[in-house]
């Protein structure tokens, strides 16, 4: 049976390589165009100042340059990161924020439902995002379906498949 063993080893290697490749791009290293400081902004703004739709829509939204320009019309600090931002605004380019928390495509999640109606805090799912001084390279909390279910169960909320799956 040596052939079989060789093949199994070969397969493990190939799959391992693929997984390592995925993990490389998938896990550790999400880069943002601007080294945004959440902690600093927390002093002057709420979450929904920039993530505008947290309380009204399913998606929270990432800020577009117009949202930033509302405060950063002219330089407020001498941070090089702010310079980058002003550059975006001046050139009229969209800021290509990378999404940190992604949902699988067949799941429907509504921020409005959980924040406005369910009265959850942001950190229940996003961790201490608001205290970060630079953008994390990976999500602070890795949520799995079990976490959703556990929370729903403890709060006595429906756990029908179609309550979340779409």
């Amino acid at each position: 049976m040596p052939k079989k063993i060789i093949f199994s080893l070969y397969l493990v290697l190939v799959i391992g390589a693929v997984v390592v490749y995925w993990s490389k791009i998938g896990e550790p290293n999400i880069k943002q165009p601007i080294q945004f400081n959440h902690l600093k902004h927390k002093e002057v703004a709420d979450c929904e100042t920039c993530h505008k739709y947290i309380k009204e829509q399913a998606f929270a939204s990432l800020p577009v340059k117009e949202d930033c320009a509302a405060c950063h019309e002219s330089p407020i600090t001498d941070s090089p990161e702010e310079k980058k931002l002003l550059d975006f605004i001046e050139k009229g380019k969209n800021i290509s924020w990378a999404r940190l928390y992604e949902l699988p495509p067949h799941v429907y999640f509504s921020h409005k439902r959980h924040v406005t109606i369910g009265d959850l805090e942001c950190k229940s799912c996003h961790g201490y995002m608001a205290d970060q001084q630079s953008p994390p390279k990976k999500p602070l909390v890795a949520l799995m379906m079990d976490d959703c279910i556990a929370c729903h169960r403890s709060a006595g909320i429906k756990t029908d498949c179609i309550a979340c799956h779409r």
Partner: peptide, 10 residues
């Protein structure tokens, strides 16, 4: 070994 993020990517 690699957790849910990889699972999502897969």
């Amino acid at each position: 070994a690699f957790g849910p993020q990889v699972g999502l990517k897969v």
